[in-house]
Write a protein that binds this DNA or RNA. Structure first.
Length: 384
DNA sequence: TCTGGGGTCCTAGGACCC
DNA sequence: TCTGGGGTCCTAGGACCC
């Protein structure tokens, strides 16, 4: 989807069209106050919008920028405070995940009516298997891609960009060729001309660390990566990742489109408005900790899962991260049980330094009803 | 004036078992 | 005096993605 969060906000507030706006920030008490202050001042801005980016004082990042905001150099994952100077008058809107999820469901429903084999890749992205879908083989896939774009636009007034290719790796690269509203088709023979000139970082799976290392080794583009011998890459990046890098550079990818998957873990975490100290801010920290446990417990219950591994995550004021976890004898979704186990985890971690973030995670998930069916069988097995 | 939240997967060492 | 080989589970950290 093109600038998904921002596009959804533009549907609600068409008066933002053409203006630089960013989605991000949080919902702290101060955010709410700021919003109230602006409510009466700018008739064009909705009640809960924060208006000027320069006036924001929170610790958030930009999740999405409208295309006019991108022209100012604003983009996702940027710190809001740090980048406010790039465009002080940009309008800051709070994230509304519930709304984005509603639109996410709608556009995915449309896709499923055209092509039933779809892999969910998050709120704004999917892989679609065109192989056996109507129009999927016409005009190199363009017929189906156009039908999907049009169907999504009619249902949601949102636009998307589609890449059609022989596999997921290439399709993902192709989808970014012509944003927004683009359709790009990459055939197997196009790898050299269309893919090799791209920066390695464009490949899904080459992140900042790997890209940095590749650059140190004199490799900037995918073509330069393809030119290296497979064993050489394996010597520098490990057997598995080195081989994968080589395959990726040659456009090889055999992964299927996966239509269903089970969650492995659920977590809740929060960055504090100010850094907190385990001793000086004990009460506040404890309150937040309990709340996080209650939230995960509620998430588990709502979705019908129980988990066995309880974990915590801390981010210190210097941004270092520590995690601890503990596996229980039995699966649980109970807030108090999670709180107790998480509390024990917390005791195993150094707490001298100030904390920026606290998180609680429940892993080793099993569906609630599967567990009920499983347990008697386990008891029987032990009898023999 | 620094840098969100919710995930997945991989690696590597150690415990433990047969 | 000299200690295997394979497997699973647990734990901590880290890379990466949306």
């Amino acid at each position: 989807m093109d600038a998904f969060y921002a596009s959804v906000e533009l549907l609600r507030y068409p008066q933002l069209a053409g203006l630089p706006a960013v989605i991000g920030g949080g919902r702290s008490a101060r955010d709410e106050q700021l919003a109230a202050e602006y409510a009466g001042r700018l008739h064009a801005i909705p009640l809960h919008a924060f208006a000027r980016l320069a006036d924001y004082r929170g610790r958030g990042v930009i999740t999405t920028a409208t295309y006019p905001a991108r022209a100012f150099g604003l983009g996702s994952a940027m710190g809001l405070m740090k980048n406010a100077h790039l465009c002080p008058d940009a309008i800051l809107l709070p994230v509304d995940f519930a709304e984005y999820r509603r639109f996410s469901r709608r556009f995915k429903e449309v896709i499923l009516t055209h092509a039933p084999v779809m892999e969910d890749r998050g709120v704004d992205e999917v892989y679609i298997d065109f192989t056996h879908a109507a129009g999927g083989q016409e005009e190199g896939g363009r017929t189906l891609a156009q039908a999907i774009q049009q169907g999504i636009f009619e249902a949601t007034r949102l636009t998307c960009s589609i890449g059609v290719a022989p596999n997921k790796l290439l399709a993902k690269l192709a989808s970014e060729f012509d944003k927004p509203r683009g359709i790009s088709i990459v055939q197997p023979d196009d790898v050299q001309a269309l893919i090799w000139p791209l920066a390695c970082r464009k490949v899904n799976g080459i992140g900042p660390k790997a890209d940095e290392k590749l650059k140190r080794l004199g490799i900037q583009t995918i073509g330069e990566l393809a030119a290296r011998e497979r064993p050489w890459l394996q010597a520098h990046f490990g057997r598995a990742y080195g081989a994968w890098l080589h395959d990726a550079a040659w456009g090889r990818d055999e992964r299927p489109v996966v239509t269903h998957s089970e969650p492995v873990s659920m977590s809740r975490e929060t960055t504090f408005e100010r850094d907190l100290h385990a001793v000086h801010d004990r009460a506040e920290l404890s309150r937040i900790f309990t709340e996080l446990c209650q939230q995960v417990a509620a998430d588990l219950a709502r979705k019908g899962y129980v988990g066995k591994t309880i974990g915590i995550k801390l981010r210190y004021d210097d941004f270092r991260i520590a995690t601890r976890d503990q596996t229980l004898a039995q699966h649980t979704q109970d807030a108090a049980t999670i709180r107790r186990a998480a509390g024990l985890c917390l005791k195993r971690v150094p707490l001298q330094q100030r904390l920026r973030l606290l998180g609680v995670r429940v892993g080793a998930l099993v569906r609630e009803q599967d567990l009920a069916a499983q347990q008697p069988a386990a008891v029987n097995a032990e009898l023999f």
